[in-house]
Design a protein around this nucleic acid. Structure first.
Lengths: 201, 201
DNA sequence: CCGGAAATGTGAGATTTACTCGTGTTTGTG
DNA sequence: CACAAACACGAGTAAATCTCACATTTCCGG
């Protein structure tokens, strides 16, 4: 269940490892998770099915590896945003705006991967645990900002976590399935307004 | 893709139909979606695999049938809550409180089913469409309440939809995976407070 | 440069699972 | 009671996941 069977030691195997993940990302994006077979992944990667199973114990492990890449990327991007906030101490409105913009950018950057991880996939305990870990990290950082801005309320941790969950859901919806006529930008503006209003009590 | 192959006409077949769905609900809850096989469902239901496929064209149809039951239940429960609101015209705080309590109760009522539908399952287009339809209905009803209370803001539909998505995500998290020490009730209180604050601008 | 050991690559096929189809059984009806 | 329609059955099929015994490549001490 670790998601990785064997770490590559030579550069040759590193190449096949990358090729497999690249092929998996492409096919998952094109055909969805259930629609892609491990044989097709191996074929597009130009390796044998045996090689695939040498590095990934099962189909889900491909997904977990991709999620790891994606979450790592998201984590570092948001980390730098928080660093800037710590240094520049902008006001509430600007702080919210920067965080929301960053999250929107993450969703826009690779919508297929986002859809894959959050819609088309059976969320295994492993995947859920990983996601919640990222959510906790974000909540901690957001909590620090709330305290700095004096809007932490009586239960800072709870408020921060709820904000993170709420923003994630709203941004996900606004970017990946903007309903009927409403365009994404309008929704993003509204998201920021609601968030600021909920904090500027 | 309708989810049903053949409607039962005799009471005998109605019984097998129920037995199959009951077995499916149990096994999905115990072993997860991918972990349960259609053969095991038929076995626990005490019918043959052929009978199962007479009523459900594929494995996903079992899930869709369960989701239909669940969403129908949720829809009617929330509908009566909205009816009471229309009749009694409570204030903002009371309105939010009743809606949140109702949603929390729905999550508590059958956590396994909720987890199944929103976590362990590859969200097919059909399932997603159905869920978004329910979300739209809720958003419309919430929008009416916002207007009644004079807190609709400049874009009532956008605001209502965002509120619905946000509350769903927050309540789901608070009830189904309350993090570390925080208990559900504390989180629910905070959810209500945040929601009221975001509207009482 | 040599030779063996470790790492990596291969693909036929064993196993599992969703799903079909021909056939047998029960129920409603005149 | 007879006949048809509805219902139930379960061995068998196609397709997917995953294994394993063996081939090839790379590494490294002598």
């Amino acid at each position: 269940m670790t998601g990785i069977r064997k770490k590559p030691r030579q550069q040759r195997s590193r190449a096949t490892w990358d090729a497999i993940l690249e092929a998996a990302a492409q096919l998952f994006g094109e055909q969805g998770y259930t629609g892609t077979t491990t044989n097709k992944v191996a074929e597009r990667a130009g390796v044998s099915i045996g090689s695939l199973y040498q590095y990934f114990p099962n189909k889900e492990a491909l997904l977990l590896a991709l999620s790891e890449q994606h979450m790592e990327h998201s984590g570092t991007v948001l980390h730098t945003v928080f660093e800037h906030l710590e240094r520049e101490h902008p006001g509430l409105e600007e702080t919210v705006s920067r965080l929301v913009d960053a999250a929107v950018e993450l969703h826009r950057h690779n919508p297929n991967m986002h859809r894959l991880l959050f819609e088309q996939t059976p969320r295994s305990p492993t995947l859920m645990a990983r996601f919640q870990r990222l959510e906790s990290l974000m909540a901690a950082a957001v909590g620090a900002q709330l305290r700095r801005l004096g809007v932490a309320g009586p239960r800072p941790e709870a408020r921060a976590l709820l904000l993170v969950q709420s923003l994630e859901a709203q941004i996900h919806g606004a970017v990946l399935s903007p309903p009927d006529g409403a365009d994404t930008d309008t929704l993003v503006t509204e998201i920021k307004a609601l968030c600021v209003a909920s904090l500027a009590s």
